[in-house]
């Protein structure tokens, strides 16, 4: 069971099961890590902002870079009107980033390796785009699906493609993150499992285990990159989609 690469994704109850309207909302290890994520983000950022020095120290610099990066992203993509969405984009980015990073610790649970979590966040973002778009532009917002300057003959066809592309956004947004985290962790576990299995075979196995050991180390570095990159991609796509809600260009 130790070598089972799927074991790390298993969910078990810590408290519960509790039933509400027939649904089991037991507090599980996944939910525990959601709480840890919130705690880590809040504690780290509050600590980094505690000194309020004019010339920032190391910790404060990281906090300010974190803030500045998301702020620039929102500012560049959404402009002035996007300021209202900055806390949301910041929360999304931070949640995904810290979830991915915590997942890199051995024996820690990776919240973002569960499709329900990533899909919920993605659906929330796209749902928000629809709500904000309709609230800002009324029914005129649907012109988003009718690009200008297209010959009338192929316009229905283009509109159909636009609608499909819009509907596929939550799928791509959620599945991209889920797939990356799931596959990365499985591959890591598989290579690490090779090392253990080969070492058990004796001297020849120990020498042979060097190759998968090297792979596991290299993949760990790659996974750290992926962990950051996926959080960044999630945040910037959120901004790009929100941009459609704020500024319809027809």
């Amino acid at each position: 069971m130790v070598n089972d690469p799927i074991h790390q994704f298993r969910i078990h109850n810590i408290f519960g099961p509790w039933n509400i309207f027939g649904y089991d909302i037991a507090f599980t290890n996944s939910n525990l890590f959601m709480g840890i994520i919130v705690l880590v983000i809040t504690a780290f950022l509050l600590l980094s902002a505690s000194k309020k020095s004019l010339v920032p120290g190391r910790l404060q610099s990281v906090g300010e870079m974190w803030y500045g990066m998301v702020h620039n992203m929102v500012d560049n993509v959404l402009g002035e009107e996007g300021a209202a969405f900055f806390p949301l984009v910041f929360s999304l980015f931070s949640f995904v980033l810290v979830a991915n990073m915590l997942g890199m610790f051995p024996y820690f649970f990776t919240v973002t390796s569960h499709v329900i979590v990533t899909a919920s966040l993605a659906l929330f973002v796209v749902g928000l785009v629809v709500v904000v778009g309709l609230w800002k532009h009324g029914l005129g917002w649907f012109k988003l699906f009718v690009p200008s300057g297209v010959p009338i003959v192929i316009l229905p066809f283009i509109s159909l493609i636009e609608v499909i592309s819009f509907l596929s956004r939550p799928i791509s947004l959620g599945l991209r993150l889920f797939g990356n985290m799931l596959a990365g962790h499985i591959v890591l576990k598989v290579f690490a499992g090779f090392v253990v299995s080969l070492v058990a075979l004796g001297l020849g196995g120990i020498i042979g285990s060097l190759a998968p050991l090297f792979m596991a180390v290299a993949l760990t570095a790659l996974e750290f990159l992926v962990a950051f990159l996926q959080a960044f991609v999630f945040a910037i796509l959120t901004c790009v989609y929100l941009n459609d809600a704020l500024h319809t260009h027809h």
């Binding site: 089991d24 507090f27 994520i37 950022l45 910041f90 979590v117």
Partner: peptide, 25 residues
């Protein structure tokens, strides 16, 4: 596992959003 995941995600993400927008940012 979906109901419990969804339930707690909503709670924790809402908490995160409130902490960020009211306190940290």
């Amino acid at each position: 596992t979906f109901p419990s995941q969804l339930f707690w995600l909503v709670i924790f993400f809402a908490a995160l959003y409130l902490l960020m927008s009211r306190l940290v940012l």
